[in-house]
Design a protein around this nucleic acid. Sequence first.
DNA 1: AACCAAGTGTGATATACATCACTCTATAAT
DNA 2: ATTATAGAGTGATGTATATCACACTTGGTT
Lengths: 187, 187
Amino acid sequence: MLEILKNHIGKIVPLTDQEFGFVASLFTAKSYKKGQFLFQEGEHLSRHYFICKGLLKLVYTDSDAREHIVGFAMEDWWESDFEAFYTQQKTSMSLICLENTDVLYITLENYKKLCGTLPKIEHFFLEKAYFGFIAAQKRILSTLTSNTKERYYQLIERYPALVQRVPKSQLAAYLGVSRETLSRLSR
Amino acid sequence: MLEILKNHIGKIVPLTDQEFGFVASLFTAKSYKKGQFLFQEGEHLSRHYFICKGLLKLVYTDSDAREHIVGFAMEDWWESDFEAFYTQQKTSMSLICLENTDVLYITLENYKKLCGTLPKIEHFFLEKAYFGFIAAQKRILSTLTSNTKERYYQLIERYPALVQRVPKSQLAAYLGVSRETLSRLSR
DNA sequence: AACCAAGTGTGATATACATCACTCTATAAT
DNA sequence: ATTATAGAGTGATGTATATCACACTTGGTT
């Protein structure tokens, strides 16, 4: 699993073996089964997750117990409740496995140590943050400019592998429409 | 105007006078009148803007010539078409003054020089990027969980000063509803 | 073989919102 | 003083989507 992380980081900031040895020493591997929670709404959260294998959903559950999917995460993605992690508040969302999943996680303490020691890694996370922000802005723009059908086809185009692996009811919860409406789209 | 920037950065990473002198040498001041474009869809963009005074909208215009407001920017905010700036593609959006506006801008070249020289500043931008991402994610969640009326009141609660200064038709273009629907909300 | 749960499709009805058309007001321009 | 213009309110109507109810398929479990 560490090899996956090394390749992933190396695409943006190449690291020497020694540097990566330090990075690796700050991560912990863990596996989860389909249906398990990595964290749950209202908990304290001290981990940022890198997904080596598997598929997850980041979920907000509203007062009527409806699930809204803030995002999916699969191989080579980072995920967490970022506000809760970074500002050390209680989580407002849950991270749940849609498939059996292997992750590497880093604690906030180690994250700070890492960025303080290796500026290259801070640059790596900055780049990740920029592209996360850009992707979020595109999703907002998509809801402003497009109807449900268009948004669904944009999703297929943008993340074809994801759409194959996720039930349509879950895609509906991501797009913000009912599963019935999504089911009727192609007519 | 430089004093505003110094205070702004200093809230996250305190700088010595010498350090800030270097920062300041890489920014350029410029003023715009209400209605002017800082940049326009389809242009090349090499500047990242810090708003010292004024109010702007970041706009995407669709194929039917409808304006969709991706975001507003006012005092103490940073704005640009971030993807275009950072990856040096053509802009897909326009940045337009809603009031007379004073900005400080930094070019991509100077931005890279700055981050390469002063790791503290890279940390500053990382923090800005994180909070930008968190805010975008909250806006997405707001569209998933809430109806128009709720989203409008969330906007008022979150940015009361902004709502005072922006015409309701523009708020409608930000919320993604027609101005008529926004006008009928309170009934 | 029988049963159960998850995922999906679809009909009927209700509702939120868009759209078009018109009006009114306040402010700026002539 | 008169005329534009921007912003905002509102009535009538059409449409996209939510909601409720039920049926069907599939793969796993007893």
